[in-house]
Amino acid sequence: MRIREHPILRFKERSKIAFTFDGRTLYGEAGDTIAGALHANGVKELSRSLHLHRPRGFYCAIGNCASCHMTVDGEANVRTCITPLKAGMVVKTQQGKGRVDGY
């Protein structure tokens, strides 16, 4: 899913960053957002709707729509589309609205 060759842009391979997603170890690259790194790993489902539990994915990319909210390092409702990935991040699919204490 990574673009390596592009007529206009240069995408150099950057250093690998390990993180966990729902217990699995995945790798992103330095400079990725969390949602971008998940996408690059083929993970398109980021959250579930509150009432019907329908799958939700990346939608707005500007931190506006709430479709990408996930629990990251215990913090709920992190806007993963604009939050940079860091090594060792623990990313989880969020259940429900999320609570301030992370559960």
């Binding site: 398109k44 489902e45 329908r54 994915g57 990346f58 939608y59 707005c60 990319a61 500007i62």
Partner: peptide
């Protein structure tokens, strides 16, 4: 609302 339905500008950001 399915994952894979994106705002066009969001896809531009991703790519």
């Amino acid at each position: 609302d399915l994952p894979g339905v994106y705002a066009a500008g969001a896809v531009q950001t991703l790519m």
